[in-house]
Design a protein around this nucleic acid. Structure first.
Lengths: 260, 260
DNA sequence: ATTTATCAGGTTGGCATACAACTTTGACAC
DNA sequence: GTGTCAAAGTTGTATGCCAACCTGATAAAT
């Protein structure tokens, strides 16, 4: 049985990150667990809300709220007059990452590793399927990258646009979604960029990233599938290293805790 | 605005898969739309449940249920005594796939393509990092695969166990989660397996899958990263083809009527 | 002037009850 | 058997009440 970390899915950081678990939270977790583990088999009918309320010693209001959540997550469907049925395709929960996990450096690295996997394959598919429009889009992103130059926030933005363009070139929307999903989670906080970096260090950084991007784009343009995969893997590898270095830097610089 | 059609209660012989929209359903959809479109900005506080109830001319019960769903989807967080707040990151919620998407064959194929990407990279990582325990687990899965033989349901189960074992061997939990997440969505419905397949057709199918699995495991054991990637890619490619064939089969077999 | 305590009003969480809308079931008539 | 229909069971909605909690303002203390 796990703690209730996952119920406040997202929120701003400065407010209490763990809200107290309500009865509905607890009941939901209980039912979810029973469904996932198979104690309540797929397709079966849940006990009547009245009975659940009695058994769990809560009011029907709480049961209804828990059921509403189950429905929202796709675990169950309620049919008026009949009952609440466990979805045939239960175990339907979405792929999600909690805030707590993202605060762990090791988790961020694991997610980056996952992104590396996706990026490599995306690059291969993009190389095979890219249209002229896709190429134009990627080129435009790289051009903007040169234009924004040393502004760290802007260059991070453009960087993600470039990767999005690659995702689109796969002609598979799910890659786009996934990159968007992971993207916002893996961008190092602005504060990292803004700390005491000398101009030329940052300049060198930008240049290196640019070279990697160019190489990747070249491979995609000449439809070199293996080459694209390699270039993407390399790029993400470097990115991972850069991220680690940044993290090490703040780890030794300050503890990164925020006063409350 | 969405239809949410409520029809006159006609009774077809079969159970309607679309249940009538409840007031809570409608209100949820309304709020979700307002949040996504930005009418209700991120971070802002929703009106008090009492006020929403008045404005929408429903009871607070309905409002509470709608809010519970918003919370379950990560769109909002309710704080007792204070109010309900729209998530800052509402637009970037979890990576998820709707039921409607899964009913589209083209979407299933795109997801399989995504899974192919992940599986290939997973195999590479597994080859680099697998422990003896991991190997034992994978071997056990393949052994069970031979044992269950021709039972389609059981072999599908064991198949997913094998892939899970590979995911674990990457020593990266997110791969495990992702495979679990995608897995249940991409297993062809049992009905597909049960249709008129002659014994030997199915037997040939099992044999082929087995060979592919063996090759993949061998590569992982000898820590052949590139070989593992290749074997995995091949396996998923074959799997994709098999899936397409099955789908074609039913598409021509029954009417396969599908809206849109 | 600044901090601390207190209080009043507002808001969500939970409970209880009643009824409406719908489904299922089984008895009954045919 | 088959069809009808009433009764029981279940979810959906409404209403009222109170508890727990948050917020901001006011008062008190330092």
């Amino acid at each position: 049985m796990e703690p209730f970390g996952r119920f406040s899915p997202v929120n701003d950081e400065r407010l209490p990150m763990v809200k107290a678990a309500s009865l509905a939270d607890i009941l939901y977790a209980k039912l979810e667990e029973e469904i996932i583990s198979g104690v309540i088999p797929a397709g079966s009918k849940l006990p009547a809300q009245k009975d659940i309320a009695e058994r769990e010693e809560v009011s029907r209001t709480v049961v209804r709220e828990a059921v509403a959540r189950l429905e929202a997550q796709g675990f169950a469907v309620a049919r008026q007059g009949s009952g609440v049925y466990v979805s045939e395709t239960a175990q339907y929960r979405a792929f999600q990452v909690t805030k707590e996990e993202l605060s762990e450096l090791s988790d961020v690295i694991k997610l980056l590793e996952m992104r590396q996997a996706i990026e490599a394959e995306m690059a291969g598919l993009a190389a095979a399927r890219r249209t002229q429009a896709d190429i134009a889009e990627m080129r435009a992103a790289l051009r903007r990258m040169r234009e924004v130059g040393d502004d760290p926030a802007a260059s991070a933005q453009v960087d993600s646009e470039f990767h999005l363009a690659i995702a689109r070139a796969t002609q598979n929307d799910y890659f786009v979604r996934f990159i968007q999903f992971l993207g916002v989670r893996l961008v190092p906080p602005r504060s990292l960029y803004l700390r005491d970096q000398s101009e030329d260090v940052h300049h060198a950084y930008v240049g290196k990233v640019s070279d990697e991007h160019e190489a990747l784009l070249e491979a995609i343009i000449r439809m070199d599938i293996e080459g694209a995969r390699l270039a993407a893997r390399l790029h993400m590898q470097e990115s991972l290293i850069r991220h680690s270095e940044l993290s090490d830097a703040i780890a030794s610089g300050n503890d990164g805790s925020r006063p409350k």
